[in-house]
């Protein structure tokens, strides 16, 4: 085959350059918005966090790292971190397991598969505020949950764990956070089911056929074939879940108010930030909380990269 002439090479270079210019022009607008609104905001928050900041007039006194020192010495902030970490450690695996289980079920060739997919996903599309209020009614002292367990004769079983017949699940400092975990596991597992379903359907049939030829049982196939091949799915779901868990706000605020009642049981890092900004009007301090939250989320994501390996290329 003849080598391209100099003229042809020049023409290809020009074409590639014009394609590159067009590509950069197309991504310029979203990139500028991203740099200003996301990256720029982080640096602006970092700047604000070094000051005593008046909402109306801006910087008042330079405080250096004082806001960060105050933060680490505040027991309510430490409680907020404790709550957020506990919530993440319990809610993320729980919801991933439920989401994966649902995905495996609706991935089978069963009757009414479409209905089950829609039914499992339905809580995820309901309004977060509406479904939280519904949940508050369900687990209130005279709510559906207590009524049903009483009618089923389960109260003696609950008594063994110290839960009386009219237990206020979401108003009790010992059970409030777990109540929110269950609520969010219910409402979010449908979304995780969709993520896992997409991953499951990307696994080729030939590996299952090979497993069947080798005589693998259903559990062995799931444990040694499906689960390892879902690694990219695990990475994606876990990353999204951890970030979402550390940003818990709306359900906690609706269930316990912005004070994180009862007794800070529902105080989360974002709720604490909100209080600093809008209850105490201390924007410098609130910015320091925001930076701390950023560091925690960034660190958690790095840890997950270590756990699940490099980010897969989808």
């Amino acid at each position: 085959m003849a080598a391209p002439t100099a003229r042809a090479r020049s023409s290809i270079r020009l074409e590639r350059r014009s394609e590159a210019i067009a590509a950069y022009a197309l991504i310029a607008v979203p990139m500028i918005l991203f740099l200003v609104l996301n990256i720029g905001s982080i640096f602006y928050a970092l700047f604000i966090s070094l000051w005593k900041w008046n909402v109306r007039s801006g910087p008042v006194d330079f405080k250096g790292l004082e806001n960060y020192g105050t933060l680490l010495g505040d027991p309510i902030f430490l409680r907020a971190i404790q709550n957020s970490v506990y919530y993440t450690l319990v809610w993320v695996p729980l919801t991933m397991v439920i989401g994966l289980s649902l995905a495996v079920i609706v991935n089978q060739k069963i009757r009414g598969r479409t209905f089950f997919r829609a039914a499992f996903y339905f809580p995820a599309i309901a309004s977060s505020a509406a479904i939280t209020i519904l949940w508050i009614f369900i687990v209130s002292p005279d709510g559906l949950f207590n009524t049903v367990r009483g009618a089923m004769g389960l109260n003696p079983l609950f008594e063994l764990f110290g839960f009386g017949p009219n237990k206020n699940w979401i108003g009790d400092q010992d059970t409030a956070l777990n109540s929110v975990i269950i609520l969010n596991a219910w409402t979010t597992s449908g979304t995780f089911m969709l993520f896992y379903l997409a991953s499951l359907q990307s696994i080729g049939n030939q590996v299952y056929e090979a497993a069947a030829i080798d005589g693998a049982t259903a559990w062995q196939t799931f444990r040694h074939v499906t689960l390892p091949l879902l690694r990219p799915g695990h990475y994606f779901v876990a990353t999204v879940a951890v970030i979402g868990a550390l940003q818990l706000f709306d359900q906690a605020a609706i269930a316990g108010g912005i004070a994180g009642d009862p007794n800070n049981a529902l105080m989360t890092m974002v709720l604490y930030l909100y209080n600093a900004a809008f209850s105490r009007f201390d924007f410098g301090y609130a910015a320091a909380v925001g930076i701390a939250l950023f560091v925690v989320i960034f660190g958690a994501t790095l840890v997950q990269r270590r756990l699940f390996g490099q980010a897969p290329s989808w």
Binding site: Q173, D261, N263
Partner: peptide, 19 residues
Amino acid sequence: PGYVDVQKAFQDAFTAQIQ
């Protein structure tokens, strides 16, 4: 000044005693 924090401190501790 700072009554919001005083209220919160009282209510948190009071709730802990009741519960």
